[in-house]
């Protein structure tokens, strides 16, 4: 209160100009962020480009999707990856059929029943550890259990079992998060109508979160399909089509690549790139399907 009215400007400026220091900081930050973006994206684009450039022509033939390599030597052209595509899809499917119900029930227990109980804390802890287990460890565990202890042969089913170990924690986690964001008000509204708790969960809570849960499952399936350690350890490669997941060798795309990599000629190389493109395509299609299904099942307001 020491200044007089005359010393003050007639009207104080409402806004200040941006100082040159702030401008410089802003520039620096913009450059750094953009550079980080380019560094992160460049290898991805490069990888995708290389794979597509070298492999895309092979997947354009009908034979690629319909034939196996049965009866062909490493030096003969022709044949396809049908046996490997079938293996990858069926192993992923069996894995999902086993893992999804278990994972969803675990998540429902954790969110709807366990809440803060000791058991729930232990399960969460175990799931956390499981989600950090490398795929080779999961594969070796199943080998020890399935082959060494139970004396059963290596098979596609054993691969699926090890994929189950990798898939359960992912699906539990996403489902848990999605169930948690279903507002308690909906549960209470349902209880207040005299609807029992389990029915509330099945008919109100899960459907509300369903769209996200499906997306999470599809993404998890896409991820485990590319796993390589389990197929290397738990099943042998074959050039033939094998429809039986419980017996015999069964190809899959990672195994196909690994085997063709060893035929050091152009034909083998081409097949490796082709298989890479096929794997990427399958995973992309699954991701797109996930998006479509989640759109279709999403909660609507109009």
């Amino acid at each position: 209160m020491t200044t007089t009215d005359l010393q003050r400007p007639a009207t104080a400026p409402a806004f200040q100009h941006i100082s040159s220091g702030r401008r410089a900081k802003n520039m620096t930050a913009t450059v750094l962020v953009s550079a980080a973006f380019v560094i992160a994206v460049a290898p991805l684009v490069w990888l995708l480009w290389t794979v597509l450039e070298k492999g895309f022509t092979h997947v354009l033939t009908a034979d690629w999707w319909q034939k196996s390599l049965a009866g062909l030597t490493g030096r003969q052209e022709g044949g396809g990856a049908y046996h490997a595509i079938y293996g990858t899809l069926v192993q992923g499917l069996i894995c999902a059929v086993i893992a999804v119900p278990i994972a969803i029930m675990v998540a429902i227990y954790l969110v709807e029943y366990g809440r803060d109980s000791k058991l729930a804390k232990w399960i969460t802890f175990t799931v956390d550890i499981l989600s950090g287990v490398p795929s080779i460890v999961a594969a070796l565990f199943i080998y020890a259990l399935w082959v060494t202890t139970l004396g059963l042969p290596r098979s596609a089913f054993a691969v699926s079992l090890s994929l189950v170990l990798l898939m359960i924690p992912v699906v539990v986690r996403t489902t848990e998060e999605l169930l948690k964001i279903v507002p308690d008000e909906l549960r209470e509204a349902s209880y207040a109508l005299g609807i029992p708790k389990w029915k509330t969960i099945v008919k109100i809570v899960v459907p509300t979160a369903l769209s996200g849960i499906i997306t999470g499952i599809m993404l998890a399936v896409a991820r485990v399909m590319g796993e390589t350690a389990p197929v290397l350890i738990l099943v042998g490669y074959t050039q033939f089509i094998n429809y039986d997941p419980f017996g015999g060798n069964m190809a899959s795309l990672p195994l196909f690549m690994n085997s063709e990599r060893l035929t050091t000629n152009e034909i083998g190389e081409a097949r490796v790139w082709g298989a890479a493109v096929t794997l990427i395509l399958i995973i992309t299609v699954i991701n797109l399907l996930a998006t479509v299904i989640s759109r279709l099942t999403a909660v609507k307001t109009k």
Partner: peptide
């Protein structure tokens, strides 16, 4: 308690229709 709630209904402060 389920049969109690079937007999005694409730309306909440915030409207909470089932979104699905």
């Amino acid at each position: 308690p389920v049969s109690v709630r079937r007999t005694i209904g409730m309306v909440f402060q915030r409207p909470n229709p089932f979104p699905t």
